[in-house]
Design a protein around this nucleic acid. Structure first.
Lengths: 116, 116
DNA sequence: ACCTATTTGTCCGTATGTATG
DNA sequence: CCATACATACGGACAAATAGG
């Protein structure tokens, strides 16, 4: 899998792992339907705790990238995690704005206002 | 606080707690700026583990309902559920764009391009 | 139909780190 | 400097769902 984590890094281990899995999905190293290593295996491989791997997996599940099933493991469900997902999120954002009666420009302004 | 959890319920303790806090926000029992009890206190009060309370709090933070700060505690930030939710979705959209390496303006353009 | 191993889900406990006041 | 409070990580335990024999 060529995934590694750095205990000395200020970024949490579970976040490091989640980021690497995301990258693997984005660059097609992992594709839809593919199975991830079991948390136990991966934990042993990375020399981190089982729970840390599970937390990374659960984070990815909350993001809609993988599916977790007891006894079955973790499976990639993201098809195109890139622009397709971004457009989906934009859809939802605009739909929500519509429910609130906000005009399209208001949403654009809202995002412009978030330019850090 | 009149919050309770039922260890015998099939729904997880942290989810039970998160749901009750959500209800308190929705029905204005808790309003913006109000401080929630510290995780330690609440855990002792509900006779559950500190981490279980923290997990509930972190879930609510991920939903944009409360803010967590080290040394300070948990504070309600939701005021208008609708608008807050919109900001949550904008957060997620921008975060996703960030993961894809897309600049802020690209997201703005993407939304502008969706003017029906 | 049964049993067993695997795998995730949750909870508890402990320890350490980091930011706040 | 010190107490408080959340953040993360590790470890152990048990439950629940799945898969396979």
């Amino acid at each position: 899998m060529l995934w590694t984590v750095d205990p000395a890094s200020p970024t949490p281990l579970f976040e490091q792992l989640a980021t690497q899995v995301r990258r693997s999905i984005v660059d097609r190293t992992l594709v839809r339907g593919e199975k991830l290593p079991s948390a136990k295996e991966l934990a042993a491989s990375l020399e981190i705790n089982l729970h840390t791997v599970l937390r990374a997996y659960q984070t990815l599940r909350d993001e809609g990238l993988i599916e977790l099933r007891r006894g079955r493991g973790a499976v990639v469900i993201a098809d195109d995690p890139g622009l397709v997902n971004l457009h989906l999120m934009a859809d939802e954002l605009l739909a929500e704005a519509g429910r609130l009666g906000l005009a399209h420009e208001h949403v654009v302004e809202l995002l412009e206002g978030r330019r850090a």
